[in-house]
Amino acid sequence: MAIRKGLGIGSMYYGIGYGFSRADIGSAEIEMAEDGTTTVYSGACDMGQGVMTVVTQVAAEELGIEPDQIRVVAADTGSTPDAGPTSGSRATFVQGVAVQNAAAELREQILDMASRMLECPKENLAVRRGQVCEIESGHEMVSVGKVAHQLHFHGRRAAAWGWHDNTTADVDPETSQGDAYATYGWATQLAEVEVDTETGRVRLTKLVSATDAGKAINPVAVEGQIEGGATMGLGYGLYEQHILEGGIPRTNSLAFYLVPTAMDVPDIECEIVEVPDPRGPFGAKGVAEPATIPTTPAILNAIHDAIGIRITETPITPERVFFAIQEARIRGEFEED
């Protein structure tokens, strides 16, 4: 039997956001219409991973209204404030707080106005499910929309601005000592591989991804990041290589540049770890990159566990493994079956 199985782990930490003095700012505006429906003007680009959904949930939670009352207008220099890029696993961590700040500010305005309208101390009031309620009794006093309308009659906009600065100081130019990032993401993955010692082919047969989300604001979206990240990590490890010869790409087609298909990816098991981070919205932090990084290292270590050979060059193509096995054989170091 030429197939050998092995297990390997890979861990990583990843500075969330820009780090070392690069401006890392989120900002958002939130506005409530007189029927209580609310628009969040958020400059963060959603690429399908779900930052719009995160923004919606954060705003709904903080403001005390329902997600379906919220519309997000996103990423347009003509209509939304600058939220920084969606990159560096920063959108949830940085823009989430900016939106939370905006929603909290609007909620306070609503409660101030409601307190005047109801002649009731503000500290006795809260917003729940779109209604201003008396905290003690839970009694619904007035809808947020009515309060928003009153704000308009009092010369105020039922709108608020939220901002969050995640910028850190630069590290020392000589030693790189310093607080490089506001926080870090953490992840460990376990990979199981099958190595065909006759052909050098490696198959990933199992992947368990333990990724620290701080707090999973939307667990399905977090799983989407974990599974997609590991798949991109698998592509990096085993299949994808942009080959240049004399500076000219030879892999200029998806016929030559191989992206993993559904047949190449095992069922990825998501272990969402939640170690709340006080700097993120409701303890949350980004997972996009932490979920991607450990896969190739875990595969490399699993290959060593399977065949006792250390591969030090990526991607781990069948040719590379095949020749590594032959070289080990020549040196008398390969453990034959």
């Binding site: 997609g228 590991a230 798949t231 559904a262 990816v265 069922d267 990825i268």
Partner: peptide, 16 residues
Amino acid sequence: RFAISGNICRCTGYGK
């Protein structure tokens, strides 16, 4: 998985 193996997805990892 076989039926969708000609469809590349770059985001989800196919599981969902």
